[in-house]
């Protein structure tokens, strides 16, 4: 509610300017940047969540993205939509964070675990009383999120930007700093991996 109010009353679009054009005119205007935060933080958070797979990391990543965007606002190129520039910053931050963190092994739930008495599968206690009580949408959401988390981050971000955010190949190539051919290839390979993990929902 607040965000939409600010959106309607505050940003440059009211004055006939796109956000991109307004930003280049008002790089030192804190109040204006606050309005951009209000307008774009939900969208940015959604991508951050799909990248990281949890709320705490998504919140940190979103915050860091806006802080960095504010610091480097004078480097913003108005030819790119503001949200796409945010995604670019976010993707760089995400990769940097992964490099700094000790490598965590993401284990698929279907992956057998070696034990003394042979292989076994990981069992996770189900807090719900029965499968019927778990809403399909949240179960599916969790499965899809898990599948996303298990594919390489370049593929993951490409799929998120294409299929969740609806960006074109050209826009994705700008965000990720790669060629359109690379975008095509990452989507092709990423989707095949995802399809394998989610095949029971695709039949």
């Amino acid at each position: 509610m607040l965000a939409s109010t600010v959106l309607e009353s505050g940003t440059g679009e009211m004055n006939g300017l796109s956000d991109a054009a307004a930003i280049t005119c008002r790089t030192d205007d804190r109040k204006f940047f606050d309005e951009l935060v209000q307008k774009y933080h939900k969208q940015a958070y959604n991508v951050a969540y799909r990248m990281t797979g949890n709320h705490a990391d998504a919140e940190d990543l979103t915050q860091d993205t806006f802080i960095k965007a504010y610091r480097f606002l004078d480097k913003y190129n108005r030819d790119m939509p503001f949200e796409n520039w945010l995604y670019r910053i976010m993707s760089n931050l995400f990769v940097d964070t992964l490099r700094r963190k000790p490598k965590a092994h993401v284990r698929s739930l279907d992956e057998p675990v070696q034990q003394e008495e042979g292989e076994t599968l990981i069992e996770i206690a189900d807090s719900a009383a029965g499968p019927e009580e778990l809403a399909l949408s949240s179960e599916l959401d969790a499965e899809m999120q898990q599948a996303l988390s298990e594919i390489p981050e370049d593929f993951r971000l490409t799929v998120i930007l294409s299929d969740i955010e609806g960006l074109s190949y050209e826009e994705i190539s700008e965000v990720m700093g790669c060629s359109i051919g690379t975008v095509r290839s990452r989507l092709h390979r990423g989707r095949r991996l995802l399809r394998e993990k989610l095949k029971k929902y695709l039949e």
Partner: peptide
């Protein structure tokens, strides 16, 4: 199968942040 996969991801509901996230960001700024 690829078309269904794309549609499936397109149907994901947006994840919403906590209501004070924008305030937190502005405070850090």
């Amino acid at each position: 199968s690829l078309l269904n996969l794309k549609r499936l991801f397109g149907r994901l509901q947006p994840k919403h942040p906590r209501s004070d996230l924008a305030t937190k960001i502005c405070h850090r700024l």
